[in-house]
Simulated scan of single mutants.
Amino acid sequence: MWHVDDVQFDGALRDLAAVAAAPGRLVPLGLPWTELSRGCRLSDDWRLAVQGELVDRAARARRRRPAAELLDAGLAPAVQRLAVKDLGRLLPRVVREPDGRDLLVVAGVVVMEVVRRRAGVWSIPAKWADVLDRWRAEHLALLARARRCVGCGTVAVNRDEEYEWRSSGADGWITRCPACAGGEHPLYGGSMRGVRYASERRRATRADRYLCAVCGLRQAAVWDHCHEPSHDFVRGSACASCNQAERSQHGLWRAFWDHGPAVRHLLECNGCRAATTLSLRHMSALAAARLRATARHDRCAAEPSVVLEQLPDGDFLARFKCAAHSGPEMRWEEAVGREIITGWVADLTAKYS
């Protein structure tokens, strides 16, 4: 999230309006056609994103000979041979529903509406190309700044590290390396254990004084709590990223039982710890992962997909589907008693207590 002054925003709107009124002569887009196999983000190059959209549209139209319609006239023979080969391999694999298509929007511009094909060459008005090129340069500069720790200036070396360093500050997202975050914020030590989330004490105590109790890398933003109605105990401090991932069961929460800090965090709920249980969604996630790891049909080694349904008596019905085969015999069901899952939770409690 970038903060922009109103004056800058108004000026940008005026510039865009002027460009829309007089877009200027058409110039070649300059599509490389040698990078078809690579996935592209807008931050890499908006031209590559346009190229990918053209390939997708050709696939949706199911054209038998899309290369002649897609490629620019006058391509060097070596480039054309490579592009035709890649197109022949890519087009049958592209699957996208026509009505599910997202608009390719860059800097507020629906790019495909200003792209034209002239004399066999994909072209764009010169002023729009200038707007999009300036957007990319400024966007890359902002991304580079966002990778730099606000404390010591160290730059994250990869996307994983950049994500791990991102904290939610009072003025939006900030980047702070673990050394700076640890130097500014202490680890959470369990001071809120046994406190109800609805209590006045929780409301009066700021979570952002501490590091996240789950990842231990970022400044915390909220107090995470158990969502079992009869529990509602504070588990501990959590950064916005870990809190959101826990809510959606993404990231480390898809395999939290292999992550000691995450299990300990869940067991900070007094109710769960005393009953050696977890909230229903975490019990379901634990059961689904255990079953995916162990259940197979015949001698197939592929990990099946599994969907759990809780039955009225509290047990679960697991529905499996083999990921490597098709056919009705590759789908099966298995009842899983709640006491079995409770036993798995008890094993975790003993291991991480």
Rank of each mutant, 00 (worst) to 15 (best):
Cys272Gly: 09
Arg196Asp: 03
Gly182Glu: 08
Leu71Ala: 05
Val105Phe: 08
Val150Asp: 14
Trp257Asp: 10
Arg264Lys: 13
Asp45Gly: 07
Asp99Phe: 13
Glu113Asp: 15
Gly120Gln: 03
Glu69Ala: 15
Phe233Leu: 06
Cys215Met: 05
Ser305Gly: 14
Gly151Tyr: 04
Arg96Cys: 14
Arg338Lys: 08
Ile174Gln: 08
Cys269Gln: 00
Val110Asp: 12
Leu13Tyr: 07
Ala83Lys: 01
Gln244His: 14
Arg202Lys: 14
Arg235Met: 14
Leu211Met: 07
Leu104Glu: 11
Ala78Gln: 15
Val155Asn: 03
Ala350Lys: 02
Tyr188Lys: 04
Pro178Asp: 08
His259Pro: 00
Gly216Val: 06
Ala119Thr: 07
Ala240Leu: 07
Arg209Gly: 03
Pro312Trp: 09
Val336Leu: 13
His3Val: 11
Arg235Lys: 10
Val336Ser: 00
Leu13Asp: 10
Val106Tyr: 04
Leu291Tyr: 09
Gly343His: 08
Arg101Ala: 15
Arg62Pro: 06
Gly260Ile: 05
Ala59Cys: 12
Tyr210Ala: 02
Asp56Ala: 15
Val114Thr: 08
Asp15Ser: 10
Glu164Ala: 15
Glu334Pro: 01
Gly194Phe: 12
Gln80Asn: 01
Ala350Cys: 00
His259Gly: 02
Arg101Gly: 09
Leu187Lys: 11
Ser305Asn: 13
Tyr163Asn: 13
Lys321Met: 12
His282Phe: 11
Pro229Phe: 04
Ala181His: 01
